[in-house]
Computed example of a mutant assay.
Amino acid sequence: MIQEILARQQHESWGAKVIERLSKDLRRDFPEMKGFSARNLKYMRALAETYPDELFVQQLVAQIPWGHNVRILDKVTTSQEREWYIYKTIENGWSRNVLELQIDSGLYRRQGKAVTNFTRTLPPAQSDLAQQLLKDPYNFDFLTLGQDAHERDLERGLLVHIRQFLLELGAGFSFVGSQYHLDVGGDDFYIDLLFYHLKLRCFVAIDLKMGKFIPEYAGKMNFYLSVLDDQLRHPSDEPSIGLILCRTDNQLVVEYALRDVNKPIGV
């Protein structure tokens, strides 16, 4: 049908209102079928022009609902980015609303952009996967925090909106606890948020900071990860990963701070 639309338009020219006439013909000939509005047919034409590779359409584009394809056609301008959102929709089972939220938040441009030391501290396959799971920046627009808010206010806000927070973190994160208690030689320490990642097969400790990154944060997280690996990590688990969430960061400062740290940390 799509090829018929393109062929008719090439033969009869754009001014011939091919789509409008074809829409009327189809609705007349197939009154029991839906989806033949002029608007839908225009999207079909756009889809055919956007994805000329029929194999790509069959193997990927056809795997997501029509409404998802329409959103991608409307909102995404480059072929590489469109393909990325199609892959992620299939991989994560995004609803149309979630897909639209991810596009509007610029997920494609944020994914995998956190500064980390993963290439030095994790095996190659684990490092690549972990890097792609982290973002910079994270989008917490669902929170309403004032300028004078503290880390505990941020933590409480994320827990109140845990569904949105998990959506922003991405697929695979399973919540373990907040202010997770660690007993080290009788001294008490607390991890702001602790998760287990089902794909990475490891614990992920998150430290929340309302200000800019300072090097001392890396040492503190390195300590947490050492304790987690000693006390919680199962023999079949991968090394625990730390994520430090700050309001701002100086990339060069982060790189120096993580250079000689032997635990996998992202900022």
Rank of each mutant, 00 (worst) to 15 (best):
S127K: 02
W84Q: 02
T144F: 11
Q132A: 12
G186E: 01
G172P: 01
P123K: 15
D148A: 14
Q80V: 13
N117A: 10
M210K: 15
Q132W: 12
T78G: 04
A205L: 07
F173L: 04
C202D: 05
K113S: 11
Q132R: 14
G157I: 00
L129G: 01
R163K: 13
Q80C: 06
G170L: 03
G93F: 05
C202L: 07
K135N: 10
S127L: 03
T116H: 11
Q164E: 13
Y108H: 12
L145M: 05
T78A: 04
Y85W: 04
I191H: 02
E216R: 14
Y180K: 13
N97V: 09
R163P: 01
K199S: 15
P215T: 02
Q131Y: 07
A149N: 07
F195G: 02
L159D: 05
D188E: 15
G170T: 01
G170H: 02
D207A: 13
N139R: 14
K113N: 11
G211P: 06
D128K: 11
I206E: 05
T119D: 15
Q147L: 14
K135G: 05
G172E: 02
W84T: 06
Q102A: 09
I214R: 13
T121R: 11
R156A: 15
I103G: 01
A114N: 06
F203Q: 09
Q111M: 12
F173C: 01
A171F: 12
A114E: 08
L198P: 03
I86T: 03
G112A: 04
V184P: 01
G146D: 02
T89R: 01
G106W: 03
G106S: 05
A205S: 12
F189V: 08
A130C: 04
V98F: 09
L122P: 04
F175C: 04
R109T: 13
Y87S: 05
L143Y: 00
F118T: 05
L154P: 04
D141Y: 10
Q132P: 03
G93N: 05
L169A: 01
F142W: 00
Y180E: 13
K135F: 08
A149R: 08
S95R: 03
D136A: 12
L107W: 10
P124C: 03
L129N: 03
K88R: 13
L143Q: 00
R110L: 08
K209Y: 06
D188H: 15
R152K: 15
L107V: 10
K220Q: 15
L194S: 03
I86W: 00
T89I: 10
Y180P: 08
I90M: 12
T144W: 10
A171D: 13
V115D: 09
K209S: 02
I162W: 07
Q147W: 11
F118N: 07
Q102E: 14
